[in-house]
Computed example of a mutant assay.
Amino acid sequence: MKLKPLGDKVVLKQMVEEETTKSGIILAGAAKEKPQQAEVIAVGPGGMVDGKDVKMEVKVGDQVIYSKYAGTEVKLDGEEYIVVKQNDIVAIVEE
């Protein structure tokens, strides 16, 4: 199965989170915070959204930072994804 976002939506897959802190402390499940960095898996077509012309700024494969409480979590074929609006993405990570 494949997710195909509509309008200005973007499908993200969260980056794998660290199990230990830099000082070597192992974090329990409840103490871990979900990372806000993700990889773009799929991008909607943009176009007219709510009466505004939206140009998609991200592309598949980009590493991005998104707003903490943004999006809708979706589980598909055992994988977890987040579907967000493009304006919930605050930055593209460039290396």
Rank of each mutant, 00 (worst) to 15 (best):
G78R: 10
Y81W: 10
Y69W: 12
L3R: 12
K55T: 09
M1A: 07
K13V: 09
S23C: 12
G61T: 07
M48G: 07
A91N: 12
K22S: 06
E17Y: 09
G47M: 14
E19I: 08
V10K: 00
A70P: 11
Y81M: 07
Q37R: 15
I26F: 02
V10F: 10
K4V: 15
T20W: 08
N87R: 15
Q63C: 07
L3G: 05
A70I: 01
G29W: 06
T21A: 13
M15E: 12
I26A: 05
M1H: 11
D62V: 08
L6K: 13
K32Q: 13
K4Q: 15
A38P: 01
M48N: 08
S67E: 10
V84T: 00
G24A: 05
K68Q: 07
T21L: 14
Y66Q: 06
E95S: 03
T21P: 03
V40L: 02
Q36Y: 04
G47R: 10
K22T: 07
V74G: 01
P45K: 13
G7I: 07
E33D: 14
G78I: 02
V40N: 01
K59N: 07
V43Y: 03
D53R: 14
G7N: 03
K2M: 13
Y66E: 00
G51N: 06
E39Y: 12
E39F: 04
A31K: 08
S67H: 07
G24I: 02
G78H: 03
S67Q: 13
V16K: 14
Q14D: 11
D77F: 13
K9C: 04
L76M: 14
I65Q: 15
T20N: 09
K85N: 08
G24M: 04
D50H: 15
G61H: 01
V90A: 05
V93S: 02
V60N: 05
D88V: 00
